[in-house]
Design a binder for these strands. Structure first.
Lengths: 189, 189
DNA sequence: GAGTGACCAGAAATGATTTTTAGTCATACG
DNA sequence: CGTATGACTAAAAATCATTTCTGGTCACTC
């Protein structure tokens, strides 16, 4: 049993269960069955340990989004599936959900930072896909960074924000209809 | 001099200068040169007084947006001008700016509520314009509520949020180009 | 009868005191 | 040796008793 690995697993468990602030280094050490000092031979401080965990989560998110890909489906359909997958992650993935709660309730700065990082990562991911699609001739050339940003923010607004004000969730078909009518209209070749 | 009017002016001044929480009823009474009890003959409580002030501000915002209208310009151009005007209001209008600060720093519930109301009002305003344009045959029929929501959130993201992550403001031409390429593409007749 | 400000109860600020916790390092151990 | 450890520390955070503030009322005034 790799000590570093034990620590990572213990930290992942604790951060997922209690969030960033409520996770203490003593607790991680206890769960991992190591002395507290040992943690500091692998990670400079609590925040770096946290970052390592979050990085792993980002990998999982990319993997989940990639898994939504369907060979032969249109770029639009795949982009939709990927975006929905990433947004579902906010509720599905225990750590992600916990961090969102903590951000709302506590405003822990380390958490706010990390959540921004995750969003940036999601936008980069979309941007990548757009650029590849342009290279393959599936999409017209466009400002990929901007379009990725607009797409992500639009999905966030329609899938996540809408429900908060209007009480009732927006159903997926209406979203697809709207987005493919508008944003995608000019992109698809 | 109308006592009610004096109170409204005093309250507007104080809320704009100090925000909701830091404005005390004693202070409003002093500025308005009335006894504190007098305020309560016109307004049931602090929150209702606040609402009255905010309602006035919403009127001003609509008026500012209407003032951006140019006879003969395309719907798209006018919608852009109107949205930009409303978003500028966040920095321009002292009360609006103050409330945004207070929301970020204090999370005063009354302020969060009111800010949501203002956003809803802005979306309704856009929705109105879209519906009129559809009736006039300037736009294709569409789900006006959804499109208004998407438009507003997109502008908010591009004009307000973008700068926060990327450091540098997004310039207006790029925004126009993107939005007219995407969202408007399918709407305009 | 409209207007007022002293008054009150509950909320919030203050600050002294205690507890918790991230990070260190002298020591034990293999 | 060098790696792991947990007692230790300084600083941050929680707690709590006390004081101050503030929204709202109402007996009184003019």
């Amino acid at each position: 049993m790799d000590r570093r690995q034990e620590i990572l697993e213990a930290a992942a468990k604790s951060f997922s269960l209690f969030g960033y602030k409520a996770t203490t280094m003593d607790q991680v050490a206890k769960i991992a069955n190591v002395g507290k000092g040992t943690i500091y031979t692998f990670f400079a401080n609590k925040e770096e340990l946290f970052h390592a965990i979050v990085l792993k989560m980002i990998e999982e998110m990319r993997a989940a989004a990639d898994a939504a890909f369907v060979e032969g489906a249109s770029f639009q359909q795949n982009a939709h599936a990927r975006l929905m997958q990433m947004l579902k992650f906010r509720e599905t993935h225990q750590l992600y959900a916990k961090l969102i709660d903590e951000e709302k309730a506590l405003r822990t700065p380390a958490v706010s930072e990390v959540l921004q990082t995750i969003e940036k990562e999601a936008v980069s991911y979309i941007q990548e896909k757009i650029e590849k699609a342009i290279a393959k001739g599936e999409l017209k050339p466009c400002d990929a960074e901007l379009v990725a940003y607009l797409l992500f923010k639009s999905y966030l607004a329609l899938v996540v924000d809408w429900g908060k004000n209007h009480g009732t969730e927006l159903d997926e078909e209406r979203i697809v209809a709207l987005i493919s009518d508008t944003i995608f209209k000019s992109l698809v070749i």
